[in-house]
Design a protein around this nucleic acid. Structure first.
Lengths: 141, 141
DNA sequence: TAATATCCTACCAAATTAGTAGAATAATGT
DNA sequence: ACATTATTCTACTAATTTGGTAGGATATTA
């Protein structure tokens, strides 16, 4: 399951997408509109900034802005930054690979199935973007 | 990611599948063959028994046996028992549904995408069985 | 230089995960 | 009946992760 932090991240990014083009958005506006603990949200937006999803400006008139169009930010990328691996086993993770103990990877049946589910999941999450989850959007399959 | 406990569960079930038809298998044989902490494995096999995957026999000649053929045990069912929900959000879980706060489900874009990924994942995990992950098996997609 | 807003370091509490200890119970063979 | 064997149950404990909080440092603008 996605952590609460990840759900907060999606809610905050959605808010920024809804206000895309309006200049920097205050973190406290996002926090109050989306009902997210302010100080926790600071951490989250900071991580997203470090990972190049956001730009920020300090001081009066400051705030956060999406660095790229909502159409360019895919959900898998956000999950990887805030939540971690998408695969169900470390040994099939593309971005967080770790070998599993006592397992001959070439010949591990569980690994083969988990690689399939990873692919099926990524096929969706890498295609869907922030734009696709805005509440007004119709979802085209 | 699947917990270590879940990976142990799969390894143990695989061992029981490999020895299917040979009568009760000692838990300490499974533990040593598959390198799983014995007392931890006790908990796991007990849960699997309570969930009707295994039968057990006490005393001399006792041990654990798969209650059904390895072909009948699908991976999603095992994950649900030992690991919990398969869906990425509680509000799209079929077996562990919980409403999420501050979210209008009818109109939540994230929810729609997460329902799609759940379906894609289940399509695989509910079809694949213990038999499919035995190391000798060829995986037919 | 005051006001504003992000940035950074360092905590803290609660929950979950991973594992252990030891006695109770049941089945079997002698 | 009784010793042996193996599962079952209750109850801990330690380590890690998750979900937050506090407070000062830094940068920007007016």
């Amino acid at each position: 399951m996605l952590s609460k932090k990840t759900q907060y991240a999606f809610r905050a990014l959605t808010d920024l997408a809804e206000n895309y083009g309006k200049g920097p958005i205050h973190i406290c506006d996002i926090a109050s509109r989306k009902n997210i603990p302010l100080k926790f949200l600071e951490n989250i937006l900071n991580e997203l900034k470090k990972s190049d999803f956001l730009e920020s400006k300090k001081g009066k008139g400051g705030g956060y802005v999406l660095k790229h169009s909502p159409k360019k930010i895919n959900l898998a990328a956000v999950i990887r930054i805030i939540n971690g691996p998408i695969a169900l086993l470390p040994c099939v993770s593309l971005n967080f690979y770790r070998r599993c103990e006592d397992c001959n990877e070439e010949n591990c049946g569980l690994r083969r199935v988990m690689a399939m589910t990873r692919d099926a999941t990524l096929k969706i999450l890498e295609k869907k973007t922030l734009q696709d989850i805005l509440s007004g959007e119709r979802l085209i399959i």
